[in-house]
Every structure is written in C-alpha cells, then in structure tokens.
Amino acid sequence: MGLDFERILPSIPYILQGIPVTLAYTSVSLFFGFIWGALLALCKVSHLTFLKWVAVFYTSIFRGTPLLLQLTLIYFATPQLVGYNISIWEAGILAFTLNSAAYISEHFRAGIGAVDKGQTEAALSLGIPYSLMMKDIILPQAIRNILPSLVNESIDLLKESALISVIGGADILKRATIVANEKYIFFEPLLVAGALYYVLVMVLTCMAHLIEKKLKTS
C-alpha cells in the first residue's frame, strides 16, 4: 500500500475549515452545558426533594442512553413533535448541551460537596441568604475544585462533537469523509482528520496540566 497525500493536498484547506466548526460546537455547548450543569447541581444539593429527584432522573437519562441517539432524536423528532424545522446547528448544540450538562452537574455536585462545611456555617452565621451564599461563597470554590474535570469534559465533548457529521454538520470529520468519497481514497483524509483531533485534544490536555499545577501551587 502507498500513502498518497498529494492527491488530497488541494482538499486540505477544506478539511481545515472544519476546525472552527468543531470548536464552535464544542465551546458553545460547553458554555451552555456549564450553566445548565451548575443549575442541575444546585437542584441536586437543594433540600427540595422534588427538584433533587428531577435532576437525578435527568442525569440518569442522559448518561444512560447513547449520545448519538439523543442527537438523532432531537434532530429528526423535533419537526414531527413540535413542528419546528430544527437546524443541524441547533440540534447539535441542544444535544451536546443537554448531554454534557448531565456530566458537568455530577462534577459540580462533587465540587460543592468538597467545599468545607465551615464555609456554609460562616455564611449562615453572618445572615447571608442561601442564594447569595451559593453564588458568592460556595460555587466559586466549587468551580475551582472542578476546573481540571471541566477541561476533561471539554476534551470528551470535542471528540464526541464528531457525531454531528452523522446528521450532516460540516465539522472536521464530515469534511474528511466528503473528500474521501469524492476521490475514492479513504485512509489519507481520515488520517488528516484524526491528526487534527489529536492536536486539539493535546492542546486541551496541556491546559489541564497547567491549571492543575497552578491550583497546586496557590
């Protein structure tokens, strides 16, 4: 077998244009997933049994079914269900957000649990209301606790965002397969795609190490 990168050389820029697409899916979903995950975690640690139960059930559903199923369900079932013609972008962001929030909420819950009980007692003894205490005292310390796992979450999300190619999103993987199908060569374009994912993941991994080191020293 011979590798022939020259034949796909003209298509490389086309594949590279998938990077911002992949990064957009990842970062936007991570942003909303972070907020939604924090809210879910607040439900899980609240004293309201109903909220707690809903959040726990939500998490088990999104962790207990394949992401690909969630994505295709949202993309294909939404028009049928509510009559709204959901775009690939919207379906992707929605599915990745809802899914990553389930995982992030678990990190958050652990991070909140790891904040010293004395912090709550000090806040209560100053008469600080629960909502302010969570927002200004507990969550900032919890976020610090879970920063490394949030970076890991973003790595997972970056790789899983490739599922968007299944419903036609023009990310790195989709573009590589388009090139492959056009030229009838598969190994080279997929290898390029793999290399791109790998480099992106390595950058995030380095960031995770830096953050962990910084947290340890301060």
């Binding site: 010293d116 912090q119 007692e121 003894s125 100053l126 008469g127 900032p140 310390q141 610090r144």
Partner: peptide, 20 residues
C-alpha cells in the same frame, strides 16, 4: 432566622474565612 443571626456574630475554631 437570617435576621437573628445578624445580631449574633460567630467565631469558629477553624476560622472559616472565605479563601477566595
């Protein structure tokens, strides 16, 4: 309860300052 607690400060063995 919050109002009552503002009338009574508390100092703990473990300080419990807000580290951030």
């Amino acid at each position: 309860v919050g109002k009552i607690r503002t009338k009574m400060g508390m100092v703990f063995q473990q300080f419990n300052l807000f580290p951030h």
